[in-house]
Design a protein around this nucleic acid. Sequence first.
DNA 1: AGCCAAAGAATGAATATTCATTCATTTCAT
DNA 2: ATGAAATGAATGAATATTCATTCTTTGGCT
Lengths: 199, 199
Amino acid sequence: MTSAELSKIEQKKADKRRRLLEAALELFAERGFHGTAVPLVAERAGISAGSVYRFFESKEALVNAVFRDAKTRLASALSDLQLDEDPKRTFDDLWARLVRFAREDPTAFHFLELQDHAPYLDDESRALEMQVLTPIAAACAELQRRGTFRADVPMDVVLACIWGAFVGLFKAERHGYLSLDEARVHQARDACFNAFAAR
Amino acid sequence: MTSAELSKIEQKKADKRRRLLEAALELFAERGFHGTAVPLVAERAGISAGSVYRFFESKEALVNAVFRDAKTRLASALSDLQLDEDPKRTFDDLWARLVRFAREDPTAFHFLELQDHAPYLDDESRALEMQVLTPIAAACAELQRRGTFRADVPMDVVLACIWGAFVGLFKAERHGYLSLDEARVHQARDACFNAFAAR
DNA sequence: AGCCAAAGAATGAATATTCATTCATTTCAT
DNA sequence: ATGAAATGAATGAATATTCATTCTTTGGCT
């Protein structure tokens, strides 16, 4: 067996794994963990039910892998946030990255929104929760330090409100209450900024 | 049979129904619909598994009843919102009512947050979704009409952000990211107001 | 009142179904 | 031809729902 052939097989295997993760992401996002049957995931991924267990030792292991995958993608969308001279730019950059993730990976966004803090997530998955908040918190903290954001409102409150508003915005769009063009996304962004801007 | 005796039995039956709805609310909020076994709900309600079906024809019918119950309570917490002379007062009243509901009925709040738009909700339950948004939308619309809120940001966006921020705030508290005293709740309220206040 | 038969409510074991997981068999690549 | 990979029917545990039985209440009768 040549190394080229080996890699071909590895590639095929990796591809199946990817399809499996994607199918699971879609179905879990749509119907929840307990509401999704493993054979259905297998079918959507184009593999047999039995083969699922060649990749993941249990349904729980699968959902944790899906979670880590999605969370990691979100975290990397927020990594290397630039702290610009102009504080508003810093905020705009943060917001733009969030929007980009929600637009480019809407299923992952939906999944993370639903499965957060679920009891079937293991410790390693739990640990990842922070990793996303950290860069957002850092950006907000910097805005506070510079006096752009009011210093009297605790970090936690700022974060919860901004993140909540963002999630609410895209959830409303998903449910058809709302259609978000770029102008509206910018209005919402500026509203969130103004909410905590020092006067 | 006297009417007093009749009412005693009716009362007992109504009491069981209430316990059943409450147990279901708690468990569904905690573990989700598919993650909750009917016999467990029965046990927590202090009745037998079989008796559940004397009250509700199926698990789906049960979850829909729970949903309507919770949604109705939230709706009534927002009914008769006062439109004060002072626009800020109107907003503060709205916010205070939301806080009151989230504090007095946290399980219902949590449940509604999770089960919104779930596929097992029927048309009647879906119809109720609006009922809650309506008074909030009316209050915000009035604030826009009076020029307190900027008129260039669409209603939908204002609503989604404020509701999202509110939910995010209490979700963060539930997850232990945050502890909310009255001062912080007021800060968040004022931040939401400022977010959309005309300058 | 006090008793009794009929109706109704409640029970929880039994049933039917669904679903995660396993494994004997087949397919495929080398 | 051989071993790894894949399959999907078989397994068994879990679970929604049913139903034969038990218990409670009711309302007529003396």
